[in-house]
Design a protein around this nucleic acid. Sequence first.
DNA 1: AAATGGGTTTAGATAAATCTAAATTAAATA
DNA 2: TATTTAATTTAGATTTATCTAAACCCATTT
Lengths: 220, 220
Amino acid sequence: MLNYSTSEENYIKAIFHLQKQDGTVTTNELANELKTKPASVTDMMKKLKAKKLLNYQPYKGFRLNNDGTRVALGIIRRHRLWEYFLAEKLKFSWDEVHEVAEDLEHVSNKKLIDKLDEFLGFPRTDPHGDPIPDANGKIEISRKICITELPLHTVAIVSSVSDQSSEILELLEHKKITIGTKLEVKKKFDFDKSMEIRIGRHPVFTISDRLAQNIFVQSN
Amino acid sequence: MLNYSTSEENYIKAIFHLQKQDGTVTTNELANELKTKPASVTDMMKKLKAKKLLNYQPYKGFRLNNDGTRVALGIIRRHRLWEYFLAEKLKFSWDEVHEVAEDLEHVSNKKLIDKLDEFLGFPRTDPHGDPIPDANGKIEISRKICITELPLHTVAIVSSVSDQSSEILELLEHKKITIGTKLEVKKKFDFDKSMEIRIGRHPVFTISDRLAQNIFVQSN
DNA sequence: AAATGGGTTTAGATAAATCTAAATTAAATA
DNA sequence: TATTTAATTTAGATTTATCTAAACCCATTT
Ligand SMILES: [Mn+2]
Ligand SMILES: [Mn+2]
Ligand SMILES: [Mn+2]
Ligand SMILES: [Mn+2]
């Protein structure tokens, strides 16, 4: 296992996340994601290609290969285990963990991470409901769907939330929605795509399309 | 509170530790400590002087000022809290914690460290017996003396060990000496400076001068 | 007082990561 | 097919941290 610089790791992780949407990632997409400039991205892509972590032809975009994906999953494992530690053990709130984990994820000592995993009881998901890769880089394929796709009158369990800001946390806490909440969609309005939700036997209430877009439920 | 690079922090911490012996630290001493070259030290001393963390006149050595000392104590606080966490929670052994803490200490998020401190129950010393500075940078002045200085037939408590290698750990475990052990020196031999030690009512046994040099006891 | 030599600093080079501005390419439009 | 333009790459500079080799300072010895 080679070691990569903090900068290289940040690029690798960002490509991994952007790939999930499209097949191949473009220079501008990545520059935008990392708040850097396209020229810097091109430089780094040449370097990562030389290190055989991705496929890249000038002007044709890039995509992590098997080795690159393995490296990315290692970084994501570290990130999400630290997020779990911060929330569960240090009582950080949901929206605070990401920023700190951004730094901790770059301390890449295998024994540290495997012992941390054990200490935490081998958690399966981080505080945002995203799956944590195991020591071999295996990750659960999250069969999650957005509640905007959920059929009416079908009870489902909230499994993750894509936005991780304090603003969405405030709203979700107010609406008493959290990971694990069982809810069903009772009505959808075409006009503004808002919807009425019910949790258990509580009265129905309304959430905006903007919020609904960020709430995901288990689909199995 | 400004932030400093990993490299700057490593220099600051090393100066702090070297100062304890001498009054002022020399270029070669620091280069040797950090396994770098004297020219690199001079460059960094100019930078840290510009940042007003130390006193430095060409050819005259250097010494942290109040601000520099405050920064150093922050780094040492992080280092030792992580060492405690690794030993106490993740069950790392004594000689493994330092290396990992060398990386973790550079993640400088005040809330992270203060919550970690709380989670650990505000430990007063790290696994090697060295005091942990509190959130305000206050550190117990360790009134420790080496057992080579200890008068004969005086029971004392082992408070710290200066070498932190796996080799000394192996030997100390074999001799059943650990932090907290009550022992007394029964005899010293001029020829090789070896000494006979007694723990409680167990039979006396011999330790070398080389080992004795590294064992410190509380002196109060 | 002059010479010596170890410790220290300076000069100049290199590697990593970034940027701006200019050049280039490829795809869409005329 | 030629032109336009937006995305991308290249060229050249900058900052940080490091190094080697040469120059310099200064305390001790001749
Ligand atoms: Mn995160
Ligand atoms: Mn997360
Ligand atoms: Mn240590
Ligand atoms: Mn220690």
